[in-house]
Amino acid sequence: MTTSTKAAKIERLAELTAQNETSSGASLWREAFRRLKTSKMAIIGGVVIAAFIVMAVVGPWVAPHSPKALTWKDEVFLNRGEFVGPRGENWFGLDHLGRDMFSRFLVGARQTLLVGVVSMLIGLIIGAVIGVVSGAAATLGGAAGRRVDTVVMRITDIMLALPSLLLAASIAAVMGQSLTTVMIAVGVVQIPIFARLLRGSMLAQGSKDYVLAAKSLGIRKRRIVVTQILPNSLSPVIVQATLSLATAIIEAAALSYLGLGNPDPSVPEWGVMLSQAQRFFDNAPMMAVYPAVGIIITALGFTLLGEAMREALDPKLRG
């Protein structure tokens, strides 16, 4: 076969492949978003989260009554076990001190969201930094890098081995009782999870051929990490971030419930409300139900969205 006919063939090939193709490329992120939009789980999760966020933002302004004022304290008789249930004026009834439960619920959403987001971010940011260092060292750092990785990972293993609630409780005990303590405690517990996840994901990507290809092109190691390995390692971390918002809210509620949260009990927060309701559960179970259901639905919303994102980002995982 002569060169010219070969060249003609290749040109023909180019023509053929040019057909039926739009000129715009769809990146994996965009494809994932498209899949996410069509997922029922994502829609339900998204609506729940949106409602929660709206409540957290506008709650204090739309609350019909003051969440702190003991407006109806004369109507509640603790010693006789007489509580006030839902009524026209107070949709969720009154709490044990005669405060409007509905207003407390609305205002409390903000604290709950704040705790969830801040503690997730603490875990995500510190965890991701540790994970990137460890993952990059392990994949491209050679023998010395692998040693760095081993040391860092053993430390996170130790952190991972501690029961999260116990760790959080001891941090709270050392730092004193405050909302910040709760956020730090819950966040610290998340650090090793994010670190391990990102490092593992980077390790998996680091052995792929395209990383080898980038190396053989002569691209600098730092750039390989940033442009090749990291973008492909992020999806499990994004999913985990969403899911850990749910756990963070629950854990923060648990810590508040244990009395490690905000020392001022008049500031409404769902976990605090739950813990206050415990004492009166026999006579006024609804006092516990509202914050509990709030926590469950919000956590469910984040979990649904997280699971939907997991599927959207990696359709192969769908079982």
Binding site: G25, S27, W29, Y210, A213, T227, Q228, N232
Partner: peptide, 9 residues
């Protein structure tokens, strides 16, 4: 496998 799935051509 030898092409980065998140980079365009």
């Amino acid at each position: 496998g030898s092409l980065n799935p998140r980079q365009n051509i």
